[in-house]
Design a binder for these strands. Sequence first.
DNA 1: CACAATTTCCCACTTTTATCCACAATTAGA
DNA 2: TCTAATTGTGGATAAAAGTGGGAAATTGTG
Lengths: 151, 151
Amino acid sequence: MFRGLNTINMDAKGRLAIPAKYRERLAELCDGHLVVTIDTEERSLLVYPMNEWEVIEKQIAALPSFDKRARRIQRLLIGHASDVEIDGSGRILLPAALREYAGLEKETVLIGQGKKLELWSKDAWEGTREEYLDEANDESQLSEQIMSISL
Amino acid sequence: MFRGLNTINMDAKGRLAIPAKYRERLAELCDGHLVVTIDTEERSLLVYPMNEWEVIEKQIAALPSFDKRARRIQRLLIGHASDVEIDGSGRILLPAALREYAGLEKETVLIGQGKKLELWSKDAWEGTREEYLDEANDESQLSEQIMSISL
DNA sequence: CACAATTTCCCACTTTTATCCACAATTAGA
DNA sequence: TCTAATTGTGGATAAAAGTGGGAAATTGTG
């Protein structure tokens, strides 16, 4: 499971150093071969090890193609999915289109989310996080399922 | 079960000495491998032995990922969860982002809470404790379940 | 086909992190 | 109360990771 939050500076060429603690696992899992796509709910990016992505892609591709919403999801997710390799210095190069979508400039935040990672611009993340915290304290908004977890 | 309250000075590098009385147990339970994340209700941190954390993480990860509220909780809890190891001198290094979240500077309070520990800045803890005491004396705020406990 | 622009690869430098060690403070025992 | 053992604290140093930039290779274009 990927977990935890890492702030990473993207350089002028759009290169992003993957935290060293993740590299070994990524090398094992997928030989450093990742897929980056957009998160359709937030202005952020999703980063999958190739093996995990393939599972997701199959599910998306299997959606009924006569369903308009399904086709939209397919266009968005598969359409933006970019193959990306970890280079000799542990960095990936993010396609300009994806950088733009997520508003990435220099300061970014890479967040472990179980089987995948999420990538945010630092500013966007900090703003969004405050909203989340407010909502997490509003019990009326939480489902029973969530309330039942005893931390 | 962890119980009791310990005041600990964090050093300039963000290192925190785990009370000696906990060390042996933590070595047995999880080989000194801990996970620290944020408490979403208070500006404090939760410290879990790895084995306990894994139980929690599974429950959180199992929430339906198409539910926005669930995804927010996942982002907050799993996203801030940091692996941390007890070093040769019995200390852990707290990631800067978590220190910031809980407003930890130097004086901190580590509080035993059953299967986990909570970490507060001393000032924040003392303020919050007073609030709790006031509320606990206001019987109208207590649920039947709480009232029924015979101390 | 030549040239420009972009991308990829590689190397060197800087910064950060981890590990180790030494000493101070505290506690427990005699 | 003194001594010994354990715990707390700070810092030095070696290793690793992060960062930037230049040259070579590739691609696109006139």
